[in-house]
Amino acid sequence: MRALTEPEIRAAFVNASRREAAQAVLPDLDAMEWSALEVLGWRDPKRPLLAYVVLVGDVGDEDDEGAARAVLLRPAAESAGAPRRRKVCSWCQDITETEDVTMYVARRAGAAGRAGSTVGTLICTDFSCSRNVRRAPTPMEVGAASAQDRAWWTQQRVDELRLRSLAFLGHVLAGDEG
């Protein structure tokens, strides 16, 4: 992911009002290791029931290739007293991090979102997907693969994270078509 600025992120929200975008508490952008990110995501420290994710990439419109898009998310309410189940993040699909995955829900863009239409997906609670896809593969995942094969496997995971996260963004934006 390329380095993004605060004004660029605030202007990139596709499913938030100007007020919501202006009130978002952004992470320390200077501390980001941009080259190791496909997904920039964080929970709002002042409002823990809000989370944000920023993606850069093509979502079907040739004019927006490389454009930053930000999405306002809310964690879905969990049933009180229900045991927490292991889940797999639908973006990074990391099989070793199954304890800390949350169902996040995003209001769709445009009129559909204003009418209450939402879309949800399971994502790592702390948005660690970019780190997870870069971890060393386990023997269960790749067996006794060579270093070259392991590097290929890691790059595949990085590419698939980009595709799956951008597909989610496409679902959020699909609300703007109606």
Rank of each mutant, 00 (worst) to 15 (best):
G66D: 02
A68D: 03
D64Q: 12
W91A: 07
Y104M: 07
D100R: 11
D94P: 06
A76Q: 15
D63T: 08
V71S: 05
E62D: 12
A80Y: 09
Q93L: 14
K87C: 05
V101L: 04
K87W: 10
A77C: 07
A67G: 00
D63H: 05
E97Y: 10
Y104N: 04
V88K: 02
A68M: 06
K87F: 11
R69Y: 07
A70C: 08
R85L: 13
Y104F: 15
V88I: 15
E65R: 14
P75W: 12
T98S: 07
A76T: 12
T96K: 12
G66S: 03
D100N: 13
A80S: 11
R84I: 14
T102L: 03
E78T: 14
L73G: 04
E62Q: 04
A70M: 08
R74T: 08
A68G: 03
A106C: 06
Y104K: 13
D100H: 10
P75D: 11
Q93V: 09
T98N: 07
K87P: 00
R86C: 04
A68T: 01
P83F: 04
Q93I: 04
D64T: 14
R86G: 14
C92F: 02
V101G: 05
D64I: 04
A80D: 08
E97N: 15
A67R: 12
P75E: 12
P75C: 14
L72Y: 02
A106T: 00
T96Q: 11
D63K: 14
T102Y: 09
R84C: 02
Q93A: 12
E78F: 08
A68C: 06
A80G: 04
C89F: 02
R74Q: 14
R85Q: 13
E99L: 11
E78K: 14
R84W: 07
A82G: 02
E78A: 13
T102H: 07
A70D: 01
L72H: 05
V101A: 00
A67N: 05
R69F: 10
A77M: 13
V105S: 13
S79I: 06
A80V: 12
T102S: 13
V88E: 09
D64S: 08
D64E: 11
A82F: 03
R69K: 15
T102W: 10
A70F: 00
